Simulated scan of single mutants.
Amino acid sequence: MTLTASYETCRRLHARFGRSYYLATRLLPSWKRRHVHALYGFARYADEIVDASSTADDRTAALDRLTARLATGLAGEPTDDHVLPAFIHTVRSFGIDYDDIDAFLQSMRADLTIARYSSYGDLLDYMEGSAAVIGTMTLPVLEPLPGWEKEAREPARQLGLAFQLTNFLRDVKEDLVRGRVYLPQDDLARFGVEESDLARPRVSPRLRELLAFEAGRAREHYRAALAGVEMLVPSSRPCVQAAHDLYGGILDEIERSDFEVLARRVQVPRHRMLATFARHLAAASAAAKADRYMGVEMPGWA
């Protein structure tokens, strides 16, 4: 497994499973794209392990093996893994915080044993590792402006939280099939929703009210993330803005369907996705020129 092949594996994982975010990355300079693909590919790789249709012991053992291979790889040992070479190279190239990686793996491990969350605070604790740190791991690749590195972390966290909460609303039934309910138990009780309501073919009025409430929370995370766009170098801004709009478009479609997420998997129509991409394409071209004017240079082999 060459490094180039590993990056290509990650790109294919991203293209297959992260349709909206993958499209947004097309607005990045090419040297940045591969690193975002590597981060997404690693996250998806671990996620597929915990979602596999095998026994709990098998999933635990597989995650243990991945964690061990990652540790030896980060220590400088070679690995024949298909995803890890690209991920490790990206981590080293940008000095990505190992604590963020550990937090992500801890949340993946939680999915092996925890299937319900009592409160939104408990869910946020889980999402800190499963989503917020994806934002902060990506941040060095996107390049905060000098002096804004610390301030840019919180909007990056918020965007990760917004994306994942959107996923939870879209995938209620899919998650239930896997035995998980990410809607907080306190909120189910507050709106009088039973877990059996999540298995019905159509959304009940009470479940619709609950989903609308959670969508409002997601909107708050999206709003909190927007401040971070201007904290990045110009060439990264169109990608992040497009990702914000494309994933926010999933939430728009959920609301447009009147929260009918049980009958089908809600998706943004292709023509709307392409229209959003096209709207940011000219800005991406202008931003690349602005980076050159500012003296932003491509590092090494990145």
Rank of each mutant, 00 (worst) to 15 (best):
D186N: 14
D175V: 02
E195M: 10
I101L: 13
S107C: 08
P155A: 02
E209G: 04
A75G: 11
G179N: 10
D102H: 15
M108Q: 12
L139W: 05
D97Y: 01
L159G: 04
D171W: 02
G95R: 05
V91C: 07
Q106N: 10
A162E: 05
E195D: 13
W148V: 08
D175W: 04
G129R: 06
L169K: 03
H89T: 10
I96D: 01
S93N: 08
R157A: 02
L211C: 09
T138P: 04
S118G: 13
V141R: 00
P155F: 00
D111E: 01
R170S: 07
L124K: 07
S93R: 06
L207R: 09
Q185W: 04
G129P: 12
R178V: 07
L84F: 05
L139F: 00
A86F: 05
R109Q: 03
L161N: 07
R153H: 02
P140R: 09
Y120M: 13
E77Y: 03
S93T: 14
F213Q: 14
Q106S: 04
A115P: 04
K173W: 01
Q158D: 10
P85N: 08
L84G: 01
A131G: 02
R208F: 03
F94A: 10
G76H: 09
G95Q: 04
L74M: 12
G160M: 04
T136R: 11
G160T: 06
R92D: 04
R178A: 00
S118I: 12
T166I: 12
G73R: 04
T90M: 10
F104H: 11
D186I: 03
A189K: 14
R157S: 08
E128S: 13
A110N: 09
L161P: 05
R109A: 11
V83H: 00
